[in-house]
């Protein structure tokens, strides 16, 4: 799985909320989605709290490629 970012977590959380809101899911699916959503919400909150800008030089970034 790709490393989760704040942005991708928020996007997935939005999808989950709209699936739950639209309904039509089985109980098992909705429980699973809810649990996934709760984890994502926690992840997003933690990301925001612990973040601190990292400063790189252009040389370093060029070497990555």
């Amino acid at each position: 799985m790709k490393k989760m970012t704040y942005e991708s977590a928020m996007k997935r959380l939005e999808e989950i909320v709209s699936s739950l809101e639209n309904g039509g899911l089985t109980l098992d699916d909705s429980v699973k989605l809810f649990e996934e959503g709760a984890k994502l919400a926690k992840f997003c909150n933690e990301q925001l709290k612990k973040a601190e800008n990292k400063i790189l030089s252009l040389d370093e970034v060029e070497e990555e490629v």
Binding site: L13, E14, I16, V17, L20, E21, G23, A41, N45, L48
Partner: peptide, 20 residues
Amino acid sequence: NLYLETASLTDKLYKSYKYY
């Protein structure tokens, strides 16, 4: 704003699940 957005989405998540 991101904190608010996260909180609002979390809120929606719980509400939609409870509604279900």
